[in-house]
């Protein structure tokens, strides 16, 4: 199977990068599906935040694959990937923050 990769990639590096990207896509997709199943069960704001953060992790892997295959230019890759990082950090920070202070039970 002939695969065209970005011109900045050669030989062993290309194979290694594509292997890592494949594993990352599988792993993040599995996590995203867990998040989605959890959100379908609970339907709460926290699950929605976590699920969107996990979806952005998948998007990150997809952008990575696009760059390796020469479909996404390098500047766009950096902007998108780090933009997703900002969003993921904000989502998880907000999910943690809205947990609120400890409440006495009973």
């Amino acid at each position: 199977m002939a695969l065209t990769v970005g011109e900045w990639l050669t030989g062993v590096e290309a194979v290694a990068l594509l292997a890592v990207l494949a594993l990352a896509t599988l792993g993040t997709a599995a996590l995203f599906l867990l998040g989605l199943a959890g959100y379908r069960r609970r339907g709460t704001r926290v699950y929605l935040l976590i699920t969107v953060a996990l979806a952005l992790l998948v998007a990150r892997s997809v952008v990575g694959v696009g760059t390796a295959l020469g479909l996404v230019p390098m500047p766009a890759h950096h902007l998108l990937a780090h933009g997703f990082d900002v969003a993921i950090a904000a989502l998880v920070l907000y999910a943690v923050y809205r947990r609120g202070p400890p409440q006495p039970t009973g």
Binding site: L34, I50, A95, G100
Partner: peptide, 11 residues
Amino acid sequence: FTRVVDDTLCD
């Protein structure tokens, strides 16, 4: 997964 999220992030 839901237990982990409930434990850490839910009231």
